[in-house]
Design a binder for these strands. Sequence first.
DNA 1: AAAAAAC
Length: 669
Amino acid sequence: MSNGTYNPNGLEQQFAGMGINNNDGYSGEGRSRYVPPHLRNSGGGGGGGGGGNNRSYGRSTESWGDAAPRANRSNDSWSTRSDYGNRSGGGGGGGSWDGRPTWKERGSYGGKYRRDGDQSYAPRRDENQGYWKDGVHHVGNRNPRLERELFGAAEDVDRQHTGINFEKYDDIPVEASGNEVPDAITSFTSPPLDAHLLSNIELARYTTPTPVQKYSIPIVAAGRDLMACAQTGSGKTGGFLFPLFSELFSKGPAPQEEENSSVPPGYGRSRKAYPTVLILAPTRELVSQIYAEGKKFGYRSWVKSCVVYGGADIGSQLRQIERGCDLLVATPGRLVDLIERARISMEQVRYLVLDEADRMLDMGFEPQIRRIVEQEGMPGVNDRTTLMFSATFPRDIQHLARDFLQDYIFLSVGRVGSTSENITQKIEYVEDEDKRSVLLDILHSSDITGLTLIFVETKRMADSLSDFLLGHNFPATSIHGDRTQRERERALEYFRSGRTPIMVATAVAARGLDIANVAHVISYDLPTDVDDYVHRIGRTGRAGNTGTATAFFNRGNKGIAGELADLLKEANQEIPQFLESIAREGRSFGGYSGRGGRGGRGRGGRGAGFGGRDYRFQSQEPSSRGFGGGGAAPDAFGAYPPLGGGYQGRPAAAAAAPPIQYQNKTSWF
DNA sequence: AAAAAAC
């Protein structure tokens, strides 16, 4: 297969390329320090440049970054959120955020180094980085090498967005609700998108907006907040990156305090970064992936993107931030850490994105998220645009939406190619002790083109199973939370590139990861939550391709049997007899009542490809979910539903008298 | 019950 942009010796070469950072100990020591993927070849400047070549730029961000006084803010176009009309149509004549000229250093910088022939000791200037001066976006030079690195070649197996079945786009169910929903766009055009962004979208070979993008672009352009129920595979990442970059490109940097712009960059009293855009996501791999997409769309622009997450060297992340940080992608834990170290400020955040919000809450990130959004000086709902994405819309997410969003547009989107059409699901009855040999059979008989992703429930199993496969000469790797970040990233890279076409994974890889060319997803162990199963199989059949999902089922999985059978039925898949009967046993016992308990969609929603419902517009009558029942009352135990409980279909505003929590079947005992 | 995530 084509190795495309993936050099087998990439890592070593990239270490070599970091020569500029020798003083940082990268190569001076006997053992090489880990360089996370986003720092390798960063900037991509000339030849051996590698990292560290943006340094001089960092200065500019430093100064504009200091927060403009609140009072100023209320005069600029940012804060008048109540006046939606003013912000649509790219108003303001494309000036800077507040109409004032932006920091001069940013402009003079170009002149300073452009004619400087000797760059051997001066901070390396990046010809490919654009800049903003006097209300004009000066786009950097093109760089074929960097373009190839960012966008890949058309034939690269691991970059393919081809095979997208565009006709199917039109079949995707989309529901938008809210006050004055802006009209959806139908194609990538300028306006409403910034012309430079459009050229980057073209380079990335995206030709048609997905449904979520069709809505999110005009919604953000109108300055509205968005709550979107959509899974990855719906073009979610582009759904927020496109409109955000478009806004940044046409509006330029946020205003900065005049006095502060004279502080010598890098030597000022603080080395704090003030990102304009903050994107939060639950896993390290996910933020890494979003950042990689961000680099594509930010190509040649003035916007400097950064990514921070745990498990990786914080020093290199700090240096990256110092070089400029307009758009930040982060996991919550590491971001809180950096805020505590006073290296990142939330005070200039104008756009906030919460990706996979339900997952973040599941993982217990709510305290960190609330701290980041509510207690660290981030502009309030009136002074920022907030986009929330979530596969499900349970009650705790509704609360978050109520607190973080203002008069939002609710969007419910299906996937590109519904589960039923693109993924063939097979359920095999396999006892635990037979799983290994059945797996070998499957691997032996399966098509060698395409990747195979195997899900297990425990980290230990991930290790032992990948060892077992390696022992049988299958090129396998594994990814789970006990592996080092370096191992995780390498595993993912090898898997993506096809160098190791089999990967054994825990839940860390179940959601959000967009890996092209996954032909087969095997649930070696079934999860207990059917939502997890849905997310897993969503790793295949992406972008309009077809895929196969196989699950090993035995009596130990009977808890999921009923919902699994329902799911298969909705997806028009074959339901094996054993599953049918085990599901029936479960149902007759205590009366299966569809989904209750923890977060998730009602059964009816998934088949239609909808992720949730805009509870704001549901009346007090029983919802279409089958969550029938009276008004607000304690549940059968006399207890009010827990805040974190999964529940939907009821206005969250009824807080004074919380509604019934419908119990999971198992809770009745 | 296990997984994920900051040091």
